[in-house]
Computed example of a mutant assay.
Amino acid sequence: MGTKPVQTAKANWVVEQNARARKGEEGLPEKWKLIIRALKRSLGKTGKAAGFENFGPLRQLGNDVFHCHLNTGKPRYVAV
């Protein structure tokens, strides 16, 4: 007799983007828009920025504000 798989609730996180961030994203090349969508999808599913560098809190702005480097080199794109 086999065991039944245990159903676990998947954590869904709310990813918010203010109007200023949305407007800034509109002006980016399509490549960066796709990267930002991937970041938002990763955050929404797991609450983590899997595969992105330097994801962490911006302590100067409080415990609920985070940043993530979207690339290396210059120009450097950072999502907050």
Results as ranks from 00 to 15, higher is better:
Met1Asn: 14
Gly2Cys: 15
Thr3Ile: 04
Thr3Pro: 02
Lys4Phe: 14
Lys4Tyr: 15
Val6Phe: 10
Val6Trp: 02
Gln7Ala: 10
Gln7Val: 14
Thr8His: 07
Thr8Asp: 11
Thr8Ala: 10
Lys10Ala: 06
Asn12Asp: 07
Asn12His: 14
Trp13Glu: 00
Trp13Lys: 01
Trp13His: 04
Trp13Phe: 09
Gln17Arg: 02
Asn18Pro: 00
Ala19Asn: 12
Ala19Asp: 14
Arg20Ala: 05
Arg20Met: 10
Arg20His: 10
Ala21Asp: 09
Arg22Cys: 06
Arg22Glu: 03
Lys23Ser: 09
Lys23Ile: 03
Gly24Arg: 00
Gly24Cys: 14
Glu26Phe: 00
Glu26Met: 04
Gly27Asp: 01
Pro29Asn: 06
Pro29Val: 00
Glu30Asp: 11
Glu30Gly: 00
Lys31Ile: 10
Lys31Tyr: 08
Trp32Ile: 06
Lys33Glu: 03
Lys33Leu: 04
Leu34Asp: 12
Ile36Ala: 07
Ile36Pro: 00
Ile36Asp: 07
Ile36Phe: 01
Arg37Trp: 04
Ala38Arg: 06
Ala38Tyr: 03
Ala38Asn: 14
Ala38Gln: 12
Ala38Leu: 06
Leu39His: 12
Lys40Pro: 01
Lys40Arg: 09
Lys40Gln: 14
Arg41Ile: 10
Arg41Gly: 10
Arg41His: 15
Arg41Cys: 09
Arg41Tyr: 14
Gly44Pro: 08
Lys45Cys: 05
Thr46Arg: 07
Gly47Asp: 10
Gly47Thr: 00
Lys48Asp: 07
Lys48Gln: 09
Lys48Met: 09
Ala49Phe: 01
Ala49Cys: 03
Ala49Thr: 04
Ala49Leu: 08
Ala50Phe: 15
Ala50Thr: 11
Ala50Tyr: 04
Ala50Ser: 14
Gly51Phe: 10
Gly51Met: 07
Phe52Tyr: 06
Phe52Glu: 07
Asn54Tyr: 15
Asn54Asp: 13
Phe55Asn: 00
Phe55Thr: 13
Phe55Glu: 04
Phe55Cys: 00
Phe55Tyr: 12
Gly56Thr: 03
Gly56Lys: 01
Gly56Phe: 09
Gly56Tyr: 15
Pro57Ile: 12
Arg59Leu: 14
Gln60Trp: 06
Leu61Gly: 02
Leu61Thr: 07
Gly62Lys: 06
Gly62Ile: 08
Gly62Gln: 03
Asn63Ile: 05
Asn63Ala: 15
Asn63Met: 13
Asn63Thr: 12
Asn63Tyr: 14
Asp64Phe: 09
Asp64His: 03
Asp64Thr: 08
Asp64Met: 01
Asp64Leu: 05
